[in-house]
Amino acid sequence: MFDSVGWPEILVLALVGLFVLGPERLPEGAAWLGKAVRQVRDYATGAREQIRSEMGPEFDELQKPLNDLRNVRNFNPKTAVTKHLLDGENPLDDLTGNGSSSSGSNGNGSASASKPAASKPLEPGERPPYDEDAT
């Protein structure tokens, strides 16, 4: 319910309450607010239970799409791709060399040319190397 309310907002509300109500009436106001929130929560729980008792098992069927939407909020595309396409293997293992596959080779035993060689920088006027296989 209060997912977006953090400590700074609560502090600002407490300061505003202190200035509006004053230090004498602030505890009474906080107690009233606590009772009101508790009463609203009880009303919501009662309404949910009443709907559940009237609808029976259909209520759970209606809640399933809402639960699916909550799961979408926590969706991680990298995990989904890893799970569904790569059968749970980490796709970065091939790139970092942590996996059991023969990473770093292009099939004929030589190192892949995807990374440029860490050589000295080009001199002024020198042309960069041209790779015909990359074009």
Rank of each mutant, 00 (worst) to 15 (best):
K78Q: 12
A36E: 02
P27C: 12
W32C: 02
G125D: 12
S102Y: 04
W32H: 04
S119M: 13
L92A: 10
E24M: 09
F59R: 02
G107N: 01
P8L: 09
P128V: 08
W7Y: 04
D87E: 01
S53W: 04
W32P: 00
I10K: 14
S103M: 04
L69W: 05
P23H: 07
S102M: 07
Y130Q: 13
A30V: 11
L26R: 02
L13T: 01
L21K: 08
P91K: 00
P116W: 10
D133W: 03
Y43T: 03
G97N: 12
T96P: 00
R25A: 15
D133S: 10
P116E: 11
E123V: 05
T45W: 06
A36T: 00
R48M: 12
T45I: 08
D94R: 03
A118V: 06
P23K: 05
A117I: 12
D60M: 14
L26I: 07
D87C: 02
A36C: 01
R38M: 04
G46Q: 05
F75S: 09
M55H: 03
T79H: 10
G125C: 06
A47N: 05
H84Q: 14
D68A: 15
E89F: 01
S102V: 06
G22E: 10
D87N: 07
E49M: 09
A36L: 04
E123N: 09
N67A: 14
